[in-house]
Simulated scan of single mutants.
Amino acid sequence: MENAKKSVELTEDELEAFSRLILPEPQTGECIYNHFAITGIRVDRVEPGFVACTLKVPPRLTDRAGNLANGAIANLVDLVGASVHFRGLPMNVSVDISISYLSKAKLGDELEITSKSLGQRGRYSGVSILVRNKATGEMIAEGRHSLFRSAASKL
């Protein structure tokens, strides 16, 4: 238990850096979590059932080793996967996300994130998300995202 506790404790340098951290004030109604998650994402192309984005890995999304954190990858898969929805229909909610982490992305790497609709049956749809290093073409992660669309309100 002590080893586990030590592995999550911050070092003196990390505590110092944390004490100097200034968080931006979220806009009215904005979630601070979403602010950090989507800042820096550039949408390059949108077509029916397809979205392509670019992100240069910022320090706020890296782990202690300077790699893009697995949680940040999961968040990108969720956000970009959910961005593929059908025009004129209510937004989808995530039901299931599955991610294969294939390699590492480093601080400053430029990533290409693509999301493609796999299809829809009733109110259930599936999306495939690929995260690649834009310079090398190396696959960083591959995700599958299942979404459910609620019924349109009759009000």
Rank of each mutant, 00 (worst) to 15 (best):
G108Q: 11
I140H: 03
E47C: 07
N70G: 15
R121N: 14
L10H: 09
D63Y: 02
R45E: 15
V84H: 00
T114E: 05
G88F: 13
E9D: 12
F50G: 06
C53I: 02
L21V: 07
K56P: 01
E2I: 09
S128W: 00
F18S: 12
L23V: 12
A72E: 04
V80M: 07
T28C: 07
I32Q: 09
F86H: 11
L68C: 01
F86M: 07
P48E: 14
S128R: 06
T136D: 05
C31N: 14
A105Y: 04
C53K: 00
E110Y: 00
I41Y: 00
T28M: 07
A17I: 08
R149G: 05
A151D: 15
N3I: 08
G40T: 08
F18I: 11
R123F: 05
G71L: 05
A141C: 12
L102F: 07
P48H: 12
N92L: 10
A4N: 08
S153H: 13
R64A: 10
V57R: 06
K104F: 08
I41N: 06
R20E: 15
T39P: 02
F148T: 02
Q27K: 15
D63W: 01
A17P: 02
S150L: 13
R45Y: 08
A65N: 10
I140R: 00
I129F: 08
A151N: 12
M1V: 13
A17F: 06
E25Q: 15
P58T: 02
E142T: 09
G119Y: 08
S117M: 08
L55P: 04
F148Y: 14
R132P: 00
P90Y: 14
P24S: 10
A17Q: 14
C53D: 04
R132E: 01
R132M: 00
V46N: 07
R123E: 00
I38G: 01
L155Y: 03
A82E: 04
L147I: 04
V8S: 02
K6Q: 13
E110S: 09
